[in-house]
Simulated assay, not measured.
Amino acid sequence: MKNKYMPTAIGLYINYFVHGMGVIILAQNMDALASQWGTDNAGVAIVISSLGIGRLIVLMVSGYLSDKFGRRPFVLLGMLTYILFFIGILVSPSIAVAYIFGILAGVANSFLDSGTYPALMESFPESPGTANVIIKAFISAGQFALPLMVGFIVSQNLWYGWTFVLSIAIFIINGIYLYNKPFPKQQAEQVDDIVEEKEPRKIFSIEGVAFILYGYVSQATFYLVSQWLTKYGSDVANMGDTSSRALISYYSVGSLLCVFVTSALVKKKFQPVTFLVGYTFISFVALLIMWLFPTALVCTIGAFVVGFSAAGGVMQLGLTVMADMFPSGKGKVTGIFYTAGSIASFTIPLVTGQLSKTNVANIILLDVGIALLGFLLAIVIFIRFKKDRRSL
Rank of each mutant, 00 (worst) to 15 (best):
A286Y: 11
V314M: 08
L372F: 15
G102A: 04
K269Y: 06
S49I: 09
I168D: 08
A296D: 09
Q36R: 00
Q316C: 00
I153Q: 05
N238T: 00
A237D: 09
I135S: 02
L213N: 08
T163S: 07
I363L: 14
Q354Y: 12
A210F: 04
Q190K: 12
F304L: 10
T334L: 01
F204P: 00
S244N: 09
W228R: 05
A137M: 05
G307L: 04
S50N: 00
V58Y: 08
V333Y: 01
V23E: 03
A340S: 14
S234Y: 06
L355M: 06
L90P: 00
F275C: 00
F293L: 15
L90W: 13
Q219C: 15
T274R: 05
F85K: 13
N157L: 07
P200D: 10
V333P: 01
G312C: 04
I89M: 15
F111I: 04
L26F: 03
T295M: 11
E207A: 11
L90R: 03
R55H: 11
F284S: 12
I379N: 04
G54R: 10
L376N: 03
Y251R: 08
L265P: 01
V321D: 05
G341T: 08
V91L: 11
S218Q: 11
G151T: 13
I87E: 01
V97K: 05
